[in-house]
Amino acid sequence: MKILKGLLVLSLLSTLIGCEGQNEFREDVIMAGGNYVKADTLNLGKRIYTEYCMACHGDKGDGNGVAAMGMSTPARNFTLGIMKFGDVVSGELPHDGIIKMHIKRGLQGSAMLPWDLSDTQLDAVVQYIKTFAPDTWIGKDKQLGAKIEITKDPFGLARKSSAIEQGKLVYHMSANCQSCHRAYVSHEELSKLNQIAYGEKMTDFDPTLYEVKPQESDHGYVNVPPDFTWHELRSVQNVEDMYLRLAAGVGGTAMPAWKDTLSDQEIWAVAYYVQSLMEYKDSPKRKEFLDQIEGK
């Protein structure tokens, strides 16, 4: 509660500071995807941003706001023009709908709170945020990526157990997710999975098998891949969200888009498997589960 009050105070101070000498937008612009945005919309967006966003993201949109100091998860630097959690293949420009969704829902495990804005306010602030990276977003030549649709779940609750087992195989074999995250099976089970996938048992094991491996990112900081039994996933609240994140990847990080590498059924299977791992978070069974697979 004290932290929340502090953020609100800093937000108010930022609002007062930001009101001095504001540069009003005087011309309409064409954003990526041919989105025609009026100057009045951008001016409204700037006012909304100043009130709600500037304390963390800064007056320049670079993530260096007065409330951002000491954050374990850095505030997003909008000047880079990179959206981590899009609805397109990572590296392409996402559609407005998913940006608005994340503003309304917030990002779990971070200081990004859910904001109760009207549709008009939401649209305005999204358009204004884009002006921090004009070379990325502004211009009729800029194109949005092809939207990734969440397909029909081939498993459903009736086949959830089957999905988890298939997802475990894909996670540790063809997707090799433990190369960045960590493994969630014992050496013995990993060897059996390798025999199922490739026809031979595994005898050599990576000494970092049960560790997450920090990765360089395009965001200016080292990105730590989540341990799914411990960390909250920023943009994932259900299995459908997990499917989208696997299919699209995470922009500016080593997390690739699996859309064209794995089959649709395999992506759904991994989504169910990862969600099953997430159920260990804050559970007394987590330690028992990890000790068992690590042979402790």
Rank of each mutant, 00 (worst) to 15 (best):
Q143Y: 02
Y49Q: 03
D87V: 02
P225R: 01
V270N: 05
S263A: 09
E20Q: 15
Q292H: 14
I98G: 08
H95M: 06
L233C: 07
Q292K: 15
L277R: 01
M278Q: 12
H102D: 08
C19R: 13
M173E: 15
V274Y: 00
D204G: 08
D282L: 01
I196M: 12
M173S: 13
Q166F: 02
Q178M: 14
F289K: 03
P134I: 05
S90T: 12
I150E: 07
L169Y: 00
I150R: 04
T79H: 02
D241A: 04
W137T: 00
A146K: 15
I17K: 13
C180W: 04
I164P: 06
G145T: 08
Y128H: 09
N223M: 15
F289G: 01
R159L: 12
E189P: 08
H95P: 01
S276P: 02
K147A: 12
D141I: 06
L8R: 10
E51I: 13
K130C: 06
I148Y: 07
N176F: 12
E149K: 12
S161Q: 12
V9C: 10
W268N: 08
H231I: 12
V37P: 03
M173H: 11
T229C: 01
L290K: 02
E211F: 15
G81I: 09
A269K: 03
K130N: 02
K5R: 13
G61P: 02
E216M: 13
D116T: 13
C19E: 15
L190D: 02
Q275T: 12
L107F: 07
W230C: 13
L117D: 11
T203V: 14
A269S: 04
L169W: 02
S276A: 11
P154C: 08
F85A: 00
V170S: 01
E211V: 11
A146L: 12
E24M: 14
V88D: 09
N43A: 07
G21C: 11
D227V: 06
E165H: 05
Q275K: 14
N176Q: 14
N35P: 10
F132W: 05
K285G: 05
K140Y: 11
F155V: 09
I138Y: 02
M69K: 15
R105C: 10
I138R: 05
M69T: 15
K192S: 13
I82Y: 07
L7M: 13
